[in-house]
Amino acid sequence: MIHDQKTLAAASPIRSRGFLADMGRRFAHDPITLGAGGVLLVVALAALLAPWIAPADPNATSIVNRLRPPGTPGHPLGTDELGRDLLSRVIWGGRLTLFMGFTPVVVATLIGGFLGILAGYAGGWVNSAIMRGMDVFYAFPSVLLAVAISGALGGGLVNGLLALTLVFIPPIARVAESVTLQVRTQPYVEAAVATGASATRIVVGHVLKNVAGPILVYASSLISISIVIASGLSFLGLGVSPPDAEWGLMLSSLRQSVYVAPVNAVIPGAMIFLTSLCFNTMTDGLRHALNVKE
């Protein structure tokens, strides 16, 4: 009998743990996700607390101490090509890198989510106008599009963020639209209409709450991509400009010394790799915890 299990569950004392508690519990049983979360927590905390925990001024150069290997007294990760302390620069660089990873995704989720839900719920010509507009952006590979936009706007942090946001709006809008289309045809939406719910109440209440999960999971999977592309822009000289510490930029300037001090040159790249890997792992765990099927 189909209902047996459910009936049993209902017969036992009701323990409505709530959505977040449920999710937390599923997270706790997933050691890999927990590990990734731990690493990210350390990286994020280090970035947040940079002014207090960085051992040295990240921009203080010292010609005599150039390219010291990791383990040098006073410089645990060594120094870069201008003699700046690498550990301090990695800590400070995390700030900009994470900022450039997060901000575009957050902004794009708001804009793309709005456009996608609007397109999905309104349907008809509104849908066509919005989604065909998005398709234009889809014609370009995301990295190329980001490079093209920030190239056209000129380098700098703000233009880099703008470029990344524009790159992420179309995919998020597309996911939002398809999930909304799915939710819109659910019986509970019809049932809500049957109880006399207004269009606003249906969209804000039922649709938004049901599409939020899948959209957030998808958006969080973009953070790691955003970090990589943001570093890429800086690497190409289109994002953050020197002397600010940013992992992509550090990788770019240390690249010239890769034969002299290979370990030093690898450090910022390893940070980018580690962070985006952990974000990806977290996203998988999140998807699992939210039970989003794809």
Binding site: Q186, Y188, T195, G196, K209
Partner: peptide
Amino acid sequence: RGSLVAMIFQEPATALDPT
């Protein structure tokens, strides 16, 4: 809808919003 005429649906599992 809901006040003059109300409707009970066939599938309570999907006609109630899960969230």
